[in-house]
Design a protein around this nucleic acid. Structure first.
Lengths: 215, 215
DNA sequence: CCGAATCCTGGTAGATACTG
DNA sequence: CAGTATCTACCAGGATTCGG
C-alpha cells in the first residue's frame, strides 16, 4: 500500500510514504480544483510522464486519497476526485505552498503558470482574519484563466472558471496587476488609474481583495 | 539547487523540489530537536543509507534550510542545524504529521519508535486553544526516552532529555499510558489508580496535559 | 570513532511509442 | 480518451573503504 517504507512509527513518516513520491502532491493540488479526467491532469501537469500519472492515480486510489469514477453513459469518461481523507490534506498543502512561495520571485526559464497553481496561490495567500464575517463572490480574469473565489462567512472556496453571480469582477488588462495587488507593490487605486485592471461591481470589494490575499 | 524540477511557477512545486526527495523531511524533523551530528542523525534514522544522508545534508545546506558547523576546538565534531528558513517549515510539517497520524493505529512489523518521532507527536497533537495563557514545564519519561515540554504563555517548545525544573514529571510505568492519555482511552485518574503512570509535582497539571495533547 | 566517499545493484522516473 | 509498453537514465539501497 505505502510505496516504500521508512520503518518508523511516526505520522510524518506515514504521510511521506503516502504522498512523498514525485508528482503526488501536485496531482492532489490539481484534484482540489474539482474532479479531473486523465487528460485534464495531463494538461495541468504538462511535464508528467503518462505512466507516472497512471501509477500515481492508482496509488492514490489504493491509499484512499482519491477515487476513480466512470461517468454515466453518454459521457464515456473517467474522473478522479478527492475523498474526504484526501481533502483533509488541504491545510498541510497550503502550509507547504506558502512556505515554498517565498523563493518564487520570477518564473525560471521553462516554467509555466497553470490555472491550478494560481488557484492554489489564492488559497495560500488567503488571510482568514482579514475576511472575518465577509460574504462575497469574486471573479478574477487573467488572460486565459478565469477564477471564481467565493468567500462565505469568512470561508474561502476557489474554483476555476467564471463565477455565476460575482459581486466584483477583476479583469487583468496588462502586466501582473493581481500579483502586484497581493504583494502590495501597487495599490488598487494605482492599478485602476494606470489601466492595469478593469473592475465591474462593488469597487469597495477591490480594497478588501488586496487585504484578504496577501503574499 | 533544486534537485529535479517540475517546470511550474508554483509555491507547492518549489517546496517539493526542495524537500520532496526521500528522507528529507525526516531529516528536518530530527533537526527540529536541535543541532545534530551526522551520527545522531543516523541513530535517529536507523534505516537511512549513509550516502543518502550525506547527499541530503549537502542539499539542505545548498538550499539554505540547514547549516553545517564545526564545533570549536576540543569537540572535533560537525553539527547540522536548521536555519530560520528551515524552521519556518514547522507549521507545514506539523500539519502533515497530524494528517499522517490518522492511519497510525499500531506499529507495523519492523517499525521502530524513535525519540524524534515521539517529540514530533507532541507537536502535532498540541492544542494551542487548550493551553491559552498557560506556563508550565513537563518532563515525560517513557522508558528509554525522556522529553521536556515547556509551555510558555501558550507556546510549546519540545526537547529531548530531562527538564531542568519541571512543574510536573510524568513517568510511564507499564503499557502505553501517554498514548492512552492523549487519545482519551483512559483518564488521568484511571492511569494513576491502575499504576500505569507515576507523577511528581502539581497533579492538576496532569489533567491539563490530557487536554493540551489530543490525538 | 566520526563523517563521509566509492562502488555496485536494483528500483523508480523520464521520454516516447503504441493500443483498446 | 485513457491509459499500457518499452527503453533509457538516474536515484536510492547496501556494503565497504578511507581520511581526519
Amino acid at each position: 500500500m505505502a510505496s516504500r517504507e521508512y520503518g518508523q512509527f511516526c505520522g510524518l513518516a506515514r504521510a511521506m510514504e503516502m504522498i512523498g513520491e514525485r508528482w503526488s502532491v501536485l496531482i492532489l493540488r490539481n484534484l482540489f480544483a474539482g474532479p479531473q479526467r486523465f487528460t485534464d491532469l495531463r494538461k495541468g501537469l504538462p511535464a508528467i510522464p503518462t505512466n507516472i500519472l497512471s501509477a500515481r492515480l492508482k496509488q492514490l486510489e489504493e491509499t484512499g486519497l482519491a477515487t476513480r469514477r466512470a461517468l454515466p453513459h453518454p459521457e464515456r469518461a473517467v474522473v478522479y476526485e478527492l475523498t474526504d481523507y484526501g481533502r483533509d490534506l488541504e491545510p498541510a498543502l497550503i502550509a507547504l505552498g506558502r512556505w515554498g512561495a517565498r523563493t518564487m520571485t520570477q518564473p525560471r526559464p521553462g516554467e509555466v503558470v497553470t490555472a491550478e497553481s494560481v488557484a492554489m496561490s489564492f488559497r495560500t495567500t488567503y488571510q482568514p482574519e482579514a475576511a472575518q464575517g465577509l460574504t462575497a463572490g469574486y471573479e478574477v480574469r487573467m488572460g486565459d484563466f478565469t477564477f471564481n473565489l467565493q468567500i462565505t462567512d469568512g470561508v474561502l472556496a476557489v474554483g476555476i472558471g467564471p463565477h455565476p453571480a460575482p459581486d466584483l469582477v477583476i479583469e487583468r488588462l496588462t502586466g501582473h496587476p493581481i500579483r502586484e495587488l497581493m504583494t502590495g507593490d501597487k495599490t488598487p487605486d494605482e492599478l485602476l488609474r494606470d489601466g492595469g485592471i478593469r473592475v465591474e461591481g462593488d469597487p469597495a470589494l477591490l480594497n478588501r481583495f488586496a487585504e484578504i490575499f496577501r503574499l
